[in-house]
């Protein structure tokens, strides 16, 4: 396992208990409303993370200037970095807030942590964004195995352990959106009717690879590759390769992009000469 941006050098040994940490939070009351910064002071508990601090703020939403405000709204779920819900931009970089330990990010008294909502998705309120487009993109590439039905028809195809390890890695993707937030080529698009032609992003490209490699999933390979060859498909990738660096699950996204690049090339050349669509 290589070190990534998500595993910061641990400062827990030097972090001082009882210190005060300042949270600068970019808030927004709702779609179309202006964004503004609010500051809160928190005395983090032992082993605190951003979530536990936000909970403290929710319990006592008093700003640094003494003004009482509404609790900060944020999205969260499992708090173990497997559901992807609590993704936000912390100190300028996207990541899950549950694994963001205060001892690492603010070990000294008076240290500041800034929280912003993800910028590539429309804000619902405060730190909560609407990531529907992410799931829509999974539909674009038909990210599923087209089984006949849910009745008992015997086991699925056999698979080598090597192949399983590759698939498992790709299948760990929790649709958190880090890869899209960090991608310079993936931009915010609030108009749903434009989603189908806008860049699909590393997340869905990698899922297309996962299902194209599955024995039964292969049946939809052509449709997936047609989608990836079209507008907003894999060719839109500008190879900035931020996706792979911010992926909390260390999914080889750039390899998926390369693999789908190759697959679309072959698919298109083959269909050019075979006369199919």
């Amino acid at each position: 396992m290589s070190n990534t941006a998500t595993t910061p050098a641990t400062n827990s040994a030097t972090a001082k208990q009882g210190r005060t940490v300042r949270f600068r939070i970019l808030r927004c009351d709702g779609p179309g409303k202006p964004s503004y910064w609010s500051e809160f002071d928190v005395q983090p508990e032992l082993n605190a993370n951003v979530i536990s601090c936000l909970k403290q703020i929710a319990e006592k939403p008093v700003m640094v200037d003494g003004k009482e405000v509404t609790p900060v709204v944020w999205d969260s779920g499992c708090l173990e970095e497997v559901c992807g819900a609590c993704t936000m931009v912390i100190n300028g970089k996207v990541r899950q807030s549950c694994t963001c330990l205060i001892d690492d990010y603010a070990p000294r008294d008076g240290d500041t942590i800034t929280l912003e909502p993800m910028s590539k998705f429309p804000v619902v309120r405060d730190l909560w964004v609407d990531r529907e487009r992410l799931f829509h993109n999974l539909k674009r590439v038909k990210a599923w195995v087209p089984i006949d039905n849910t009745y008992s028809l015997g086991p699925g195809p056999k698979e080598s352990p090597e192949s399983q390890q590759t698939h498992y890695k790709l299948s760990e993707c929790m649709s958190c959106g880090c890869c899209l937030e960090a991608c310079p080529q993936f931009t915010i698009e609030e108009d749903e009717s434009k989603w189908n032609n806008a860049f699909i992003g590393a997340h869905a490209i990698s899922q297309a690879r996962l299902f194209n490699n599955h024995e039964t999933g292969k049946q939809l390979k052509g449709e997936r590759l047609d989608e990836l060859a079209g507008p907003g498909g894999v060719a839109d990738c500008g190879n900035a390769q931020n996706c792979v660096k911010v992926c909390p699950k260390e999914i080889p996204l750039t390899e998926s992009i390369g693999a789908m690049g190759r697959a679309t090339t072959i698919h298109k050349i083959a269909s050019f000469f075979s006369g199919k669509k």
């Binding site: 300028g92 310079p184 080529q185 931009t187 900035a240 931020n242």
Partner: peptide, 14 residues
Amino acid sequence: TGKNNTQRYAYQDN
């Protein structure tokens, strides 16, 4: 169609 973000993600590839 893209938007640079090297300020935040100052990786060499980016």
